[in-house]
């Protein structure tokens, strides 16, 4: 059979290396290259990317050098110490605890939860949507009824109840509790695109070429909705920072001995803190604003990179 192809084509094994090189020279830039060009063309987005990566790396590494239980000990002598001193860069709170150190450990906790939640809920949501949309029929019916059921549950109340009945919860179990609910939006979004994508001829062509269903789903369809996946994941990351922060602010998030962005913002509950001791809550609030803005800038670049007509970067 190989001879059959040899006979009718003037290409033989000897030409392989040369032709391969020619083809390489003409190759289209990869997606990663296109995204990078897009970042280079948009300076604010580049700055946003540097801020996000730099800040996350800083708090992740910085938190390793801080002894959290010791930091959280109350020290009445440092009651509301002023910021910008050698001992307390950002001052101290009502317990005499360093705001700067709390900010580092708290960011690590909040961002860690947001990353974990994004990874788990997006993975589950994407797989759920892809499988449900691709197979259709009874599988789709069953999976969508499960979706409808979880959608019907009052999310915030369920989380609060679960947090109260679980005795010793920590960052990991909190992430898992959130993940029970936050896959839903992603799954419906992905399913709707998968439904459209599955009807296209290239899926039929893959089936006719003998490719298995799982390979078609994850290597054929998923790359085609990758732009949607990237954007949804970036934006839900920004949203997920807010999820933990909001709940901790209400007092149902992390336990009080574990600092987080939410517990720090909760300092603003006290009118005296708002007017007199601004350093107890302002840094955390500013951090959330800057992080979420930066993430949305990065999200915009990714969206532009996915759509050739909106690109600003040089073609290469």
């Amino acid at each position: 059979m190989a001879e059959n192809f040899e006979k009718h084509s003037d290409i033989s094994a000897a030409d392989l290396a040369r032709l391969n090189q020619e083809a390489q020279a003409e190759a289209t830039p990869s997606t990663a290259k296109i995204i990078w060009n897009e970042f280079k063309a948009d300076k604010p987005a580049m700055a946003a990317l540097v801020i996000i990566v730099g800040f996350i790396a800083f708090v992740m590494i910085g938190a390793l050098f801080i002894n959290t239980p010791k930091m959280m000990e109350t020290n009445i002598m440092d009651y509301f110490d002023k910021p910008f001193t050698a001992d307390f860069w950002l001052g101290a709170d009502s317990g005499g605890r360093s705001v700067a150190k709390q900010l580092i450990v708290g960011s690590r906790n909040s961002i860690g939860i947001a990353i974990g939640l994004t990874v788990i809920s997006s993975t589950v949501g994407i797989c759920w949507g892809l499988i449900s949309g691709y197979f259709g029929g009874y599988i789709d019916w069953g999976m969508q009824r499960v979706y409808d059921f979880t959608m019907m549950l009052p999310m915030l109340m369920m989380i609060i109840v679960l947090v109260t009945i679980i005795p010793h919860y920590n960052a990991v179990s909190l992430t898992l509790i959130f993940s029970l609910f936050y896959w839903e939006g992603t799954s419906r979004l992905i399913r709707s695109r998968t439904l459209a994508e599955t009807q296209k001829d290239y899926v039929a062509a893959s089936k006719a070429s003998g490719t298995s269903n799982w390979k078609i789903i994850f290597q054929g369809i998923m790359p085609n909705i990758s732009s949607l996946i990237i954007i949804d994941t970036t934006l839900s990351f920004a949203e997920n920072i807010g999820v933990e922060t909001g709940l901790s602010y209400l007092g149902f998030g992390l336990p009080t001995q574990t600092p987080s962005l939410g517990t720090m913002i909760a300092n603003a509950n006290d009118p005296a803190n708002i007017t007199l001791y601004w350093w107890t809550w302002l840094p955390a609030a500013l951090e959330i604003i800057i992080l979420c803005l930066s993430i949305s800038y990065v999200g915009q670049v990714l969206r532009r990179a996915a759509d050739a007509s909106q690109r600003q970067g040089a073609a290469d």
Binding site: A2, S9, S12, L19, N20, A27
Partner: peptide, 28 residues
């Protein structure tokens, strides 16, 4: 890997396309 690439190049040749099509995308 090499046999496969060779076969693809031969197929492209049979249908009258150049080898530089190898790493391009359909919309091109």
């Amino acid at each position: 890997k090499d046999d496969e690439k060779l076969r693809v190049l031969q197929l492209l040749n049979i249908v009258g396309l150049d080898a530089d099509a190898l790493y391009k995308y359909p919309h091109q």
